[in-house]
Each structure stands twice: as C-alpha cells, then as structure tokens.
Design a protein around this nucleic acid. Structure first.
Length: 423
RNA sequence: GUGGGUGUAGCCUAGUGGUUAAGGCGCCAGUCUGUGGCACUGGAGAUCGGGGGUUCAAAUCCCCUCACCCACCCCA
C-alpha cells in the first residue's frame, strides 16, 4: 500500500475503466441531446447558502455530509453535494426566466458528500441529471422520467424498475406530516430508536423504516396519497396517464420520500430489480418551491439525478462491457536512423487520423514485437536503419495471417487506412 | 454517525509464534545477434496497510490507527 492514497471514499478512474465510463457519458449526452437539453457546467464549489437554503437545514446532506469551508476571503463555500440547487442558482443569475420556458438543462459532473463509504456510496460521486425549469405541467415530469428511462434502455440495462409517488405541495405535505405524527405519537415507545428520532426530524422516513416494517402502527398509518388536495391528485393522475400512454411501466409506492426538502408533488426512483442496499440508480422529482428559496420568482421545475458509479456497477453486474479504443499501429524502431524514421512515419499516420503507439528504441525486435502483440494493435510498422535509408517500412499484420510487406509512406497510408475502414 | 468483516509484490493467493515470507498472473530479459503469439530458463518487484506492545523470536498474539467491504443510517 502506497504511503499516500486518494482521500477516503474518492477514487482514481484508471484508463482501463474509462471505456465503460465513456459509454455511459456518451449515452447521457445522446439522450440529453435527443430531448433538447443543453449542458450547463457550474462550479464545483458554491456559496454555502445555495445548499443551506434549498436542500433544507434539517437534511443529513447539510447537517453531516457537506464539505463546507471558509476561503481566504472569509466567504463560506461548499463543495456541491448535488446539482439541482446550483443549476437553479445559475438559472436565476443568468436571467433564464426571460428565455422561452421551459428551460431544459443537463449536467454531468462530480458531487461531494462526507459520508461513510461503502459499495455504491462514495464521497466523490459523479452524477448526470437534467432539469426542466419553468413548466408546472405533469407533461414536464413525464418528459424527464422518459428521458431517464431512455438512458437506462440505451445503455442496455435490464430489469430497471420505476417507482413513483406524489408527496403533494409543501402545504399538503405539512398537513400530512402533522397527521402522521399524531398517528404515530401514541406508538412512539414501541418504535425503534431510529424511528423515534425521525418522528421529530423526518417523519416521512418512518414509513420505510426497515426495523419497524412489521409494526402495526405503520400498516394503519394514513397514506400520503389520501392527503393530496385536488390539484395534487389531478397532477398525479395526469402523470400516470401519460406514463401509461408511453408504455413506461411503473409501480406506485407511497413510501417514496425524497431526501431533500425542496421536492413537491411527483417523485420517483429507478432501481434494478431485486437490488437492495445502495442500488438506487437515480431519482428525481418536482421542486416547485425551490426558486423562491433561492430568492427568485416562483418558478416550477422538475428533474432527476442519476449516479454514474452506480450505473457502472450495474452494467458490470449485467455483464455489459465496453471495448477499449482501437489501436491501429505500433511502431518498431531499430537503430538510431530507424528511431527517427519511425517517429516521422508515426506522425504521418496520426495526421491521417490513425492511433499510433510509438515503440521503444533500444529494445530488441523480439521484445518490441511481443509488446506490439500484447497492445491489441492491428499492425506493427518496423522501421530500422535499412528501411530508413530506403524510405520504406515493413508492415506486419499482427492478428491476421498476412504476408509482411515492404511499403513506402504512401503505400503504407493506403494499406492501413483501407484496413481501418474495413474494421 | 453505529455495528461487524478484511488488509501479504501491480493483480490473485499460500503461509495462524521459529532458517533468507512461497506460488500463479502480469512486467523485464534470454533461449532465437532484424521478426510476435507457443514453450522453456532467468530477473526485477513485499519496510506482510501504518504505529506501538507482548515474546529469546511476530505476517501470525494484543492495543491504537488508516483504508476497503457488509449491514444500519442516509442517499444517486
């Protein structure tokens, strides 16, 4: 173990892992493009207040998990724990309210949460997400859900289940939380310690307590769906009607509660079937009150975030791999004149758009060919002193059973390019 | 944040108080002086996660610490 290591819960992304990450990133970009969401890149740090005001002071995210610090000027900054609040800050800062509504934005980048790491849970985590801002309609919720659904389908993921719920507007939820507290209070003594704590801090969470799952007080608890007002009900019904029309399967789960205070009405989660633990792939919801918390005018919004590490883990579990980028040629320089000639030839090939690894001069031909063979390249291009003198190279196909050929530069470009086109 | 498990070369693993910590993969080289894949031979690479303690003697036992993993909590 090296003396110096990456910070706890943070990881190096090695070149061998990159192809799979690029597969995911490409799919995110393609899907966002397909729904006309433009990428917005915000700073990794924000004024701490962006999150304190939006996410909710009570949430764990703010209470225990935020990387906050003072910069040299004395300002309070925070590594962003999530992106929605930052995107909304940017929306307000750049006057996007006067653009045609809704404004469709996407992001892809690292988030930071000081939490105890385990599989699928990291202190630096990457998220892709979208925000559809300025549209209060159920159609906007469904567009965002459909986009997220399309992403997982595009990646080839199997058995991803969608669960949805409505938690109503802020007023509805306050009313419901009061009712739920009143219902549970008489049973507090028989509930678990965690649930007793949640009774005060985050009463909705009591409903999906694992410890108290069998508790009769939970079974008899009022459902939030019964507490919805007329507007909430109509909204939720329309969301379901549109999902049905799209043929997107879902399950209504009244226990879904988003962790962040700013959610309202529609909330949802995507999870691999049978997955427990840290398996939620991505989740989203409507956040109609958020802009006002950030000092802006009332502006509705809806969006989701999905964890890239979790997608990658699930892809691996399902045996989905990504091929590494193809290497076309490895040069095999021999001798001093050959070394210079090999570099010239490599340059020409690269200008023609080919991927070329420079061989290491000074190593034996045998060793170099062995290395070329392991590289996965299609060709070795041998350039020794003899070849340099005659301005030719030896072209050797590594995989195919082809005769080695002596070619000049033009013939080499032609031969390699042809084969690249064929593959 | 709570509880538990695991840390031996780049990777996987053997070694549970007693020579110089063993093997496989990978890496480098040679057999084959300018021709790869196969095979054989050799080499480099480990303060046994780190620190402290017990002991004549510690990878091995004890304490602390760090990291990863699992469950909880929380969340994507």
């Amino acid at each position: 173990m090296a003396e110096l290591q990456a910070p706890r819960g943070m990881h190096d992304l090695l070149p061998e892992e990159e192809p799979l990450w690029r597969l995911v990133r490409d799919a995110c970009e393609r899907v966002a493009r397909g729904f006309d969401y433009g990428f917005l890149t915000t700073p990794i740090v924000e004024d701490e207040r962006v999150f304190l005001r939006s996410v909710g002071d009570e949430s764990d995210l703010v209470q225990k998990e935020m990387y906050s610090f003072e910069d040299r000027g004395g300002g309070r900054l925070a590594l962003r724990p999530e992106a929605t609040a930052a995107v909304c800050r940017a929306y307000l800062e750049h006057g996007m309210g006067s653009r045609p509504q809704p404004v469709r934005l996407a992001y892809f980048g690292p988030m930071f949460r000081y939490d105890r790491p385990q599989a699928g849970r990291y202190r630096q985590l990457w998220q892709f997400g979208v925000e559809c801002i300025g549209d209060a309609s159920p159609a906007a919720d469904v567009e965002v859900i459909e986009l997220q659904h399309a992403l997982y389908r595009e990646l080839g993921l199997d058995g991803i289940a969608l669960r949805i719920n409505s938690i109503g507007t802020a007023e509805t939820r306050q009313r419901y939380e009061r009712a739920l507290r009143e219902h549970l209070a008489p049973h507090a003594q028989s509930l678990s310690k965690d649930s007793q704590r949640r009774l005060a801090t985050n009463v909705l969470r009591v409903l999906d307590s694992k410890e108290d799952a069998q508790h009769p007080a939970l079974a008899s608890a009022p459902s939030i769906l019964d507490a919805l007002d007329t507007g909430d009900r109509e909204h939720f019904a329309e969301v379901r009607r549109l999902l049905d029309a799209l043929g997107i399967a879902y399950e209504i789960d009244p226990r879904i509660v988003r962790g962040l205070d700013y959610y309202a009405r529609t909330v949802w989660e995507f999870e691999p079937k049978g997955g427990g633990g840290q398996s939620t792939l991505g989740a989203g919801g409507r956040y109609d009150g958020l802009m006002e918390l950030l000092g802006g005018p009332p502006t509705p919004g809806t969006g989701f975030a999905t964890g890239i590490e979790r997608i990658v883990l699930t892809l691996r579990e399902q045996g989905i791999e990504a091929a590494p980028a193809a290497l076309d040629v490895v040069t095999v320089p021999l001798g001093d004149a050959g070394a210079a000639w090999a570099m010239r030839v490599a340059g020409e090939l690269r200008r023609a758009g080919l991927a070329v690894r420079g061989g290491t001069p000074g190593r034996s031909l045998r060793a170099q060919l062995r290395a070329a063979n392991h590289s996965g390249a299609r060709y070795a291009v041998i350039a020794g002193d003899d070849e340099a003198a005659q301005h030719v190279v030896q072209l050797k196909a590594l995989a195919a059973d082809e005769e080695q050929r002596t070619l000049d530069l033009d013939a080499l470009l032609e031969a390699v390019r042809q084969s690249a086109g064929a593959s």
